[in-house]
Nucleic acid binder design. Structure first.
Lengths: 213, 213
DNA sequence: ACCTGAACACCGTTCAAGT
DNA sequence: ACCTGAACACCGTTCAAGT
């Protein structure tokens, strides 16, 4: 338990964050605890409190120092396809760092690469004809949908064995015409649905134009 | 600690769920623990495991037995306004039962009233011109946005005192034109943004029509 | 300044034992 | 069948004490 040669005994924020990142990558955030982290660093849980105020601050530091490598060169040059590609990048980052989403929602600072992505999306929106203010509002909607999808789109039950059909013909669906109609095909339809499906809804609208508009 | 008259000693699922609901309503889900729940029932944590397999099942039962009173009479009769009103109802339910959202995402069964609301939204979508399959896909998008917004739209930091402006002019924003331009007004714009703003984006599209389309 | 050890106030879950 | 008590394997955080 006591440090004897080899690894340096003294802590610093970088060592703490590196080790924390390793735990999250290998076992998920749910396995990141002050106690486990300290043990991995041959230290004590309480020693960590000299470097971060609490666990929330540790998570915020983890996000601020995250390596968000975005390959800007691979993006389409302009138009709607660039916007779609940027949103897909954002979605992929969120899926990879799902645990960070609720922390981001509290308003913690992102790093330069995260800010760059936001700026690119805002720019792409204005290039498609929105004013800066409209682009801001559109980005809010994109954020909620993208984060929501990244966070919630894995119907993995812990028990109950095989995944049930999306809409069941269970007793509570009796007499509900649309659900009864969709029940047999909802599984296939759900498989067709992707983040990009929803993204297109968001950009182009889900409803047909009102006649005369 | 031991039961002496007054309340009945024997447990049953209804008593357990009622007490659990009271804890969640009064103190939030984070305060709902098997131990606290058992103590409130003058019982032991382990006794609860005769009625539910684990805590996840307790939460699923809580959702299945939730009282989702939806005032159908107060809804507009038809058209887009009915659809908007239904989605706003769904949003309000999600905000009131925020803790249930991640559980719902795993695919647990909702009760008859929840199924009714889904059916009404699907019906409203078809009445606006979508095929049943298109309505299903549109409902998926609505669900992710609505759940995402309900879950993530409260920028409440635990520390750092006053809420910071939405887009800061922090070092990481240097040279990012749109963020720098929006920084001074982002606070006001964020205040203007509501669930309904995003909902309209979703239904009507955020982008202007391509010319010639 | 940096770190330890003990302590406080908690968790979910299993399992053998009692009635 | 229904319930208890002890136990296992954990949590985040505070605080007095050591160097």
């Amino acid at each position: 338990m006591v440090n004897t040669g080899g690894r340096p005994a003294r802590l610093n924020l970088d060592r703490i964050l590196d080790e924390a990142r390793e735990i999250v990558a290998a076992d998920g955030v749910e396995k990141l605890s002050m106690r486990r982290l300290a043990a991995r660093l041959d230290s004590t849980p309480t020693a960590l409190y000299h470097y971060v105020r609490d666990k929330d601050e540790l998570l915020a530091e983890l996000i601020a120092s995250a390596d968000l490598h975005i390959d800007a060169a691979a993006l389409p040059e302009g138009g709607t396809e660039r916007l779609v590609a940027l949103c897909e990048r954002m979605h992929r980052l969120f899926v990879a760092h799902r645990w960070a989403i609720p922390v981001l929602a509290t308003g913690v600072a992102v790093n330069a690469r995260g800010a760059w992505l936001t700026n690119e999306i805002l720019t792409a929106l204005t290039e498609r004809g929105l004013t800066p203010s409209e682009a801001f509002l559109a980005h809010e909607t994109l954020w909620y949908f993208t984060a929501g999808h990244a966070l919630l789109a894995h119907r993995h039950r812990r028990h109950d064995a095989a995944a049930p059909p999306h809409y069941t013909s269970a007793p509570q669906a009796r007499g509900l015409a649309m659900i009864e109609e969709l029940a047999p095909v909802s599984g296939d339809l759900a498989r067709d649905y992707s983040f990009t499906t929803g993204l297109r809804h968001l950009l182009d609208g889900t409803l047909p134009r009102e006649r005369g508009a």
